[in-house]
Nucleic acid binder design. Structure first.
Lengths: 218, 218
DNA sequence: GCCAATCCCGAACGAACGTTCGGTCTGTCA
DNA sequence: TGACAGACCGAACGTTCGTTCGGGATTGGC
């Protein structure tokens, strides 16, 4: 109508999103003011509102644009795995490759988008219910892919696991991968690919262990 | 002098800290106002300042009081391990017990202090430099204990690992343990002890694998 | 019965917040 | 050349923020 129709047609410039993510990743959403963002992006306070409707939508855009490539990549890997299935002989190596590639994709993207990932992990709570739901659905779809891969890896190697056991183990894997936000730096810890391989090895070696306590499954 | 000398002598009531931690864990430090805290704790806005000097000190107290018991417990476990050493025959089971107990202590405390742990993970950045440094030192001492345990576990089982490899593996362990803040609930996932056992098994089985890529160690 | 200490409150302070409004500048296309 | 749209700005709006101030209850020791 009169005010700039915000989001989709005229996309918010990437440099604004990147610099906002950098600021918010260290100060949090509520701890970062629009004036901070204006100063950092070299724009005026009111000029920012030309690119998004309000602060909360900016947070949504950081989440959405930061997470979408990661999800798209994971969905591609899964569909490749599915289309290459039907040959039961190669099932075990195929499921291993899927899991390994997913971990590699995740850590590779994480390592080069640390700020966005930090913002992503702070949660959807400051977002409007519509935006929050949209981001949570992206995360759920992503989690489902990893659960699928973990389940495939286990059941091509030993008897199938229960859904709750697969979920738990998937969360442990996410823990190892996502926790790097607090400590990983390329200079100190080397390339993300090598780290991905270590996580893959650690997880798969531990993953196949028999269930340690039946108490966990009701 | 005139204003209430804040911290140590007359400790801040535990219920204020607990309710503040609950609020801050879901809204973040900057997203939680003093008026929110007053409403939740059933006190007046100005009445809160009788118990701490300012909002930032409240955050420090949540961190300090929340983390100290965990650190104390870990230090007790390590000193028990050290005093029981000197019998090289039992070295391997002893180091396994240390690691297992540490994980159990961590998850047990986490599971019953989820709010405080969430606040703890949001970081020391909003704190003054003095308070931030104090909390960071507590975390470092705690991390050192886990590095020590992981190192002991490895070198009583195979040739010793490099310091950087021990550090990396310790961080993977912390990742599995701390990531539960996002998904763990007693009702869905059972008691923390069983989860601790699963993490211990997963980690130790994967931990002893040979270094997957020499690229990680310079 | 009094004093001091502790705990707590209502009301207000200045500063910072997210957002809006009217206007300018810089192209592009007719 | 003129009209128009997109990108941007300075100044201000009303609200909320963290913090302070003067004072009122309640309590325990003397």
């Amino acid at each position: 109508m009169d005010t700039p129709p915000p989001t989709d047609q005229q996309p918010c410039p990437d440099d604004i999103l990147a610099q906002s993510a950098a600021l918010m990743s260290s100060q949090g959403y509520h701890g970062t003011s629009m004036r901070d963002l204006a100063r950092t992006t070299g724009r005026s306070l009111s000029g920012l509102y030309h690119h998004f409707a309000n602060k909360e939508e900016l947070l949504y855009l950081i989440n959405q644009r930061g997470f979408s490539p990661l999800l798209a990549n994971a969905e591609r890997l899964r569909s490749e795995y599915r289309s290459g299935n039907g040959r039961p002989v190669a099932a075990a190596p195929a499921s291993a490759a899927l899991l390994c590639d997913l971990i590699g994709s995740h850590l590779g993207y994480f390592g080069s988008h640390l700020n966005e990932m930090r913002v992503l992990m702070f949660g959807t709570q400051p977002m409007s219910s519509a935006h929050g739901k949209a981001i949570r659905q992206l995360k759920e779809r992503y989690t489902e892919i990893f659960k699928f891969a973990v389940g495939q890896y286990i059941e091509t190697r030993r008897e199938a696991a229960t859904a709750i056991e697969i979920e738990r183990k998937t969360y442990l894997l996410f823990g190892m991968m996502n926790w790097i936000f607090g400590w990983y730096s390329f200079d100190e810890h080397g390339p993300a690919e090598a780290l991905a391989e270590e996580i893959y090895t650690t997880f798969t070696k531990g993953c196949l262990a028999l269930r340690p306590a039946a108490a966990l499954d009701e």
